[in-house]
Design a protein around this nucleic acid. Structure first.
Lengths: 143, 143
DNA sequence: ATAGATGCAAATGTTTTGCAGGAAA
DNA sequence: TTTCCTGCAAAACATTTGCATCTAT
């Protein structure tokens, strides 16, 4: 069975919090892990219903939140106002193409360092951040 | 009369685009300029109704969009999903306190430079960006 | 006179909530 | 057999749109 590690992580989280281990939660986790990065709740809903037509919107929303709390997923909100989820992984930022919708991840230790300096200068304790560059990607910029 | 420069800029924009110069548009511009940074459409609506009780939500929304197109306002969307507007000014980023809601602006030329490097590396033409650090401000961080 | 603006109500699209029935512990 | 989940329908929320009316030009 696929995604053994993540399934076990979910099971542990559920047990630790006296929550219940259901088919729906496993199904949604599987679909999410399979679907790749930056999926919306609706993406997950559509895909999970291919295998499990009974599942409801509500359950998807609730489960995606749960996966975030369990540290398996991470929420991202871009400028279109739709919440997206990605598999929890190393700290990074995004380039978003406003023509084709492509999302590219990047990392930059120089920016990280500068952020820390700024936070310190303002007495701020930074818990999370977002950093997105919007524009046209290589394929979409003409001329 | 206050905000002469901006009123004139709006008038010019309207004329150039064959749009009409109405009391509502002036009133909303005034309120927006008076209200300070990072106001929501609802903020503007509440304030403008103190002087002009007849004005509708719709007009505020439409006019804030218009002010953006005219280059007098600038849209900002933070993680709460509510669109905010600020007076168009030099490029900058934001520190957002998730306890008290305070928003602090900062500028960092090092980050700007790094962004340009990254865009170049990916063949991206950056049109705009957002960069927000969420956490607790000096007054809200305890211990 | 006429293109464009207004304001109400209704629609939109995403996400959340109430609740009765259902499944896991 | 109790606690937690599910799924539906309805609500919530910010924002947009249809449309009849009104106003600036």
């Amino acid at each position: 069975m696929a995604h053994e590690v993540e399934r076990r992580a979910l099971a542990e989280y559920l047990e630790k919090h006296s929550l219940k281990h259901t088919k729906q939660r496993d199904a949604i986790l599987d679909v999410f892990l399979e679907a790749g990065q930056h999926v919306t709740s609706d993406d997950v809903y559509q895909r999970v219903r291919e295998q499990h037509p009974g599942i409801g919107y509500t359950t998807v929303y609730r489960t995606m939140k749960l996966l975030c709390e369990a540290g398996l997923a991470q929420e991202q909100t871009f400028d279109d106002g739709i919440t997206r989820y990605e598999i929890e992984h190393e700290h990074h930022d995004h380039l978003v193409c406003t023509k084709c919708g492509k999302i590219i991840e990047f990392e930059c230790s120089m920016i990280e360092a500068a952020q820390n300096d700024i936070a310190r200068a303002y007495g701020f304790r930074v818990l999370r951040h977002r950093h997105e560059l919007y524009g046209h990607c290589e394929d979409c910029r003409e001329g």
